[in-house]
Amino acid sequence: MNEHYYHAKDLAQFANVGDFQKSLADKFFSYYGEVFKDSELTAREKSLIALAVAHAVQCPYCIDAYSTDAVEKGWSGPQMMEAVHVACAIRGGASLVHGVQMMNKVKDISM
């Protein structure tokens, strides 16, 4: 086991997850490739969504990959940062909206 949980070079080894379970990995990567093709949404639009989700799930590999991919597909730094803010707003909002649950509970148990 390495000293650190995350290594940048491991990103390039992603495809090797098939070494331990090939059929599921093959299905996953086939599906993954299909998802990111031009379709109802363009591959360019999907790249920006992926970047935002990468931040929401806080995956350093995904942030690495989709920061590069989004730049390659022509998104600017300010556009990418706005996408990150969308992820941030949804994550923050997800916490805050639970405040309603808290308020309801407080009201339930209060005189």
Partner: peptide, 17 residues
């Protein structure tokens, strides 16, 4: 051509943009 250390995207889609 890319303005940095990255590869070009798909030519056809980029041409449309």
């Amino acid at each position: 051509n890319p303005a940095g250390a990255f590869l070009p995207p798909a030519q056809e889609a980029l041409e449309r943009e």
